[in-house]
């Protein structure tokens, strides 16, 4: 409606400038990579010359083609029980942690979004609503975002270390160690999804006299749900990897078995566990693709 003088003409040069911006970004990336490599002393030659034993490398990667289910310790021990134990612990930790993280992520994500106090979805009629808009809403959202930032910016292994120092070794600390950062990670993305969900249906309900709770629960939440589910599934895959790694801290997940076998130089066993982890990840990925496709249709 408001004609912007010269807006049509400005487009051309901006487009060309955009091209060179991108080129500059790419150049910057390579420059940064080079500086980083120099800083770390990454010499492509030393990568090969400093290798102590080529035999170890040959043995290790050679073992990739012959994973085993019989222990290499010479005791003819069947490995399957250990594999299953590792898988069970990995799954149990990941699932328990994710079930906590999704709940916490939904609550935190909702608080960190601005749907419940900003915009046309809530009225501005009563004194309470005005206060919500001006002070209460923004400050609660601000605090929630800060909290989310703190949760997700500490790696799960560091959470594990701190929880171990604080509570001593128990399996509950492993679950918490995954659940805490994942709550933050999920909450951040959930809040964006809730904020970006189409608002038409919510506005229509409000126009029909619905209260805030209804507008948000019926008009907005179902619209964000497919994205939320898909993201939670993707994060479950990551949680499995995190749970596996926690094994290096003494929990009985796949990481524990990997490190134990590796330190005993039982490379074929190591590959058995690596392939098991691979299998788990493939199954979960396949499953989430299947579900996501459902969701698009449904």
């Amino acid at each position: 409606m408001n004609p912007k003088p010269g807006s049509a003409g400005a487009k051309g040069p901006r487009g060309r400038l955009g091209g060179s911006t991108r080129a500059r970004v790419i150049t910057g990336i390579f420059a940064a990579g080079l500086i980083a490599a120099v800083h770390l002393g990454l010499n492509p030659i030393t990568l090969f010359t400093e290798i102590r034993s080529w035999k170890v490398i040959r043995d290790f990667f050679g073992a990739a083609l012959q994973p085993t289910l019989i222990s290499e310790s010479g005791s003819e021990l069947f490995l399957l029980p250990a594999v299953l134990e590792g898988v069970q612990a990995t799954l149990v930790f990941a699932i328990a942690a994710m079930s906590l993280a999704v709940i916490a992520g939904l609550i935190l994500g909702f608080l960190a979004s601005s749907v419940w106090w900003d915009g046309d979805l809530v009225g501005g009629e009563t004194g309470f609503q005005r206060a919500l808009r001006r002070t209460v809403g923004p400050s609660i959202t601000g605090v929630a975002r800060l909290f989310i930032g703190l949760l997700r910016s500490v790696h799960e292994l560091l959470w594990a270390m701190m929880l171990l120092s604080a509570f001593g070794l128990s399996h509950a600390t492993a679950v918490l160690a995954i659940a805490l950062p994942y709550s933050g990670i999920l909450a951040k993305i959930f809040s964006e999804m809730i904020d970006e969900a189409p608002r038409g249906a919510g506005l229509a309900l409000r126009a029909a006299g619905a209260g805030e709770a209804t507008v948000l629960a019926i008009g907005i939440f179902p619209r964000a749900l497919p994205d939320i589910t898909a993201y939670a599934l993707y994060r479950f895959e990551c949680a499995l990897r995190s749970a596996a790694v926690l094994g290096f801290f003494g929990y009985p997940t796949l990481g524990y078995f990997i490190s134990a076998s590796f330190e005993n130089l039982y490379y074929r066993e190591v590959w058995t566990y690596l392939y098991t982890l691979l299998g788990l990840i493939i199954i979960v990925e396949f499953w989430s693709v299947l579900l996501r496709r459902r969701h698009d249709f449904a």
Binding site: V56, R241, I282
Partner: peptide, 19 residues
């Protein structure tokens, strides 16, 4: 499928110390 931490653990022994 194999986490960074596991890769690092394996490569540390295979390639020796350094970055």
């Amino acid at each position: 499928a194999i986490p960074e931490y596991v890769w690092a653990f394996l490569l540390l022994t295979l390639l020796g110390v350094g970055a």
